[in-house]
Amino acid sequence: MSVDASQFKNALKLWASGVTVVTAQSEQQGLKGMTATSFSSVSVDPPQVLVCLNQNTDTGTVVLEQKQFAVNILGAEQRDVSNQFAGGSTQEERFANVGWEVGENGAPLLTESLASLECKVVDQVLAGTHWIVIGEVQKVICRSGEPLLYYSGAYRELTQA
């Protein structure tokens, strides 16, 4: 028995997640960035994370070519940033209204994100339409604030009990 795409998507809508923007840069292709909710820690020792990137994206192409990237964990006030990097705009437009700086590994770091993790690609696995990219975290910058959450097709906020 196979699961159709709509059933699969409906089930995954029930998984709440944080929102990130994965960024990379190359001399030939310039700045690249995309919104990604498929992000997870992998290991503490060594510190590793994974992101899942559609193999047809220009951001994914640059990440795999450069073997360097950053994961920027978005804060609750960054819904517009998430939407801006989600598609429909050019890479130039994505970075135009966002504060950023170049990290030590060359990847853009969004200066208003909750955290920025600079990573070196240590492994990649093609799974269906996406690359599972494992990165060893080389540097971390943490800032204060509440996370941007995504659940059932909409942004959500934390509530205090």
Results as ranks from 00 to 15, higher is better:
1 M>P: 11
2 S>T: 10
2 S>N: 05
4 D>V: 09
4 D>G: 05
4 D>M: 05
6 S>Q: 12
6 S>K: 14
8 F>Q: 07
9 K>V: 09
10 N>Y: 06
10 N>H: 11
11 A>I: 14
11 A>L: 15
11 A>K: 01
14 L>V: 01
15 W>Y: 15
20 T>S: 15
20 T>K: 03
21 V>P: 00
21 V>G: 02
22 V>I: 15
22 V>Y: 02
23 T>A: 06
23 T>P: 06
25 Q>W: 15
25 Q>Y: 15
25 Q>D: 01
25 Q>T: 02
25 Q>I: 01
30 G>M: 06
33 G>A: 04
34 M>W: 03
34 M>F: 08
35 T>Y: 02
35 T>C: 04
37 T>V: 13
37 T>M: 09
38 S>P: 03
39 F>P: 02
41 S>G: 12
42 V>R: 00
43 S>M: 10
43 S>I: 10
43 S>F: 13
44 V>I: 12
46 P>Q: 09
47 P>E: 05
47 P>F: 12
51 V>E: 01
51 V>F: 06
51 V>L: 12
52 C>P: 01
52 C>Q: 07
54 N>V: 04
54 N>G: 11
54 N>I: 03
55 Q>Y: 08
55 Q>S: 14
57 T>V: 08
58 D>P: 03
59 T>F: 07
60 G>Y: 05
60 G>E: 02
61 T>Q: 14
61 T>K: 15
61 T>D: 09
62 V>D: 04
64 L>Y: 08
64 L>N: 07
65 E>Y: 05
66 Q>Y: 07
67 K>W: 02
67 K>M: 09
68 Q>D: 02
68 Q>N: 10
69 F>V: 03
69 F>N: 00
72 N>P: 06
72 N>L: 02
74 L>C: 09
75 G>K: 01
75 G>W: 00
75 G>V: 02
77 E>G: 08
78 Q>F: 07
79 R>H: 07
86 A>W: 12
86 A>P: 08
86 A>K: 05
87 G>I: 06
88 G>C: 11
89 S>G: 06
90 T>G: 13
90 T>M: 14
90 T>D: 08
90 T>V: 10
91 Q>P: 10
92 E>N: 06
93 E>P: 03
95 F>A: 03
95 F>V: 04
95 F>I: 02
96 A>I: 01
97 N>E: 15
97 N>W: 08
99 G>F: 10
99 G>W: 12
101 E>G: 07
102 V>C: 14
105 N>F: 05
106 G>I: 07
107 A>S: 15
110 L>I: 15
110 L>C: 08
110 L>A: 00
110 L>R: 00
111 T>F: 14
111 T>W: 13
114 L>M: 13
115 A>G: 07
115 A>D: 08
117 L>G: 00
117 L>R: 01
118 E>V: 04
118 E>W: 04
122 V>G: 03
124 Q>V: 09
125 V>E: 05
125 V>H: 14
126 L>K: 12
126 L>Y: 06
129 T>A: 09
129 T>E: 12
130 H>F: 10
131 W>A: 01
140 V>D: 03
140 V>E: 11
142 C>A: 11
143 R>Q: 14
144 S>E: 14
145 G>S: 11
148 L>I: 03
150 Y>Q: 01
152 S>M: 13
153 G>K: 06
153 G>C: 06
153 G>V: 07
153 G>S: 09
154 A>V: 07
155 Y>M: 05
156 R>D: 04
156 R>S: 12
158 L>Y: 13
158 L>A: 11
159 T>P: 00
159 T>I: 13
159 T>A: 13
159 T>K: 13
161 A>M: 08
